[in-house]
Amino acid sequence: MVINLSGLKVEKVVAAATSASHEILLDENDVNFERVNFISDILSRNTVLDSFNEIEFEDFTTFFNIMKMDLIKPNKILKIKIENEEEFDILSNLLIDTGLSNFYTIILLMDENLFLNLLKMKLSLISHIHLEIYLSKISFDQKELLVNEKSQKWISKNPVCFDIIINRDNYVDILSEIPYLYSNKMIRFFNISYDYQSFEKMTIEELQKLEFWINHIKIWAIFSNDKKFEKIEIKGISKFHLPIFIARDGNLFYNRQHYEYKETPLFNIFNERDEYSFQEMAKILRYTKLSPDIFYFPFQPKKIMWNMINYFDNLKLMGNVNEIPVITALIMQWSWRK
């Protein structure tokens, strides 16, 4: 038997065609086919993080370990949780030495007390680094935030964002406090995440109330954007946005909530292998390859606000990470402003 298949290894062809009882000659005129896609290239530890534009690290150590591996391409948003001043010192020195903040958007997640201490003690150091600060909690009676004129000035010029998750029980309190925080604490950015799983259980009447409050805060934000004052922004990203959370052991999750629920991880970044099973591949690829905007929703929002999608909630509510639940689409619709 003579077999000549261009582009294919002879031994593979012979092995494959051992069954062929007929004499088939594949001549020089056969199609000159060359493979473009390879199964071995589908998933690799070196490229898996390329799909995401926002990477959150469980803590400072995780950030440090992952950056050493040189797996993250520039122009990504990196979120790092900072627990104490010591971590901040190490990180700020690292950022100054390496210039990392020129290649990435660095967001520090911290609580209010740490932030106040940094404002008091490390203001000159903070001022040297280009970064954003997300505060997980703000106590409304805390007056120290306006500690002195210098720190006031710093806050007014730098992005300090109130990062809050609202749910069915607390949304009225939180949304009604936003004007206060803006007026009295000079917080200009509000990153509101929604606990869709709790909103899902709302009655129609409760939903109407929620719509009222979202509208209320939206209109307040529009009217607050006076040139005399600083601009207020309730963050909504209309360009494609895909987040990932990296735990200390290198496991990847949709977000921190997904990690805290002790769900099965999507992938492990420390585990380097040549081959992955199709189940292992599918776990992470169904998230990165199937973008929700190819689905049409039961209720179509005017525009997708990417950072409002909670992929873990998608999974819990729809049984599918790629599908946006009705409640998410509704809140997106209400939040959207031209």
């Binding site: 998933l43 199709f278 591949m281 599918a282 690829l285 169904r286 199937l290 790629n322």
Partner: peptide, 9 residues
């Protein structure tokens, strides 16, 4: 894959 939309890659 755990998703009705995602085939064995």
């Amino acid at each position: 894959s755990g998703s009705i939309y995602f085939q064995n890659p």
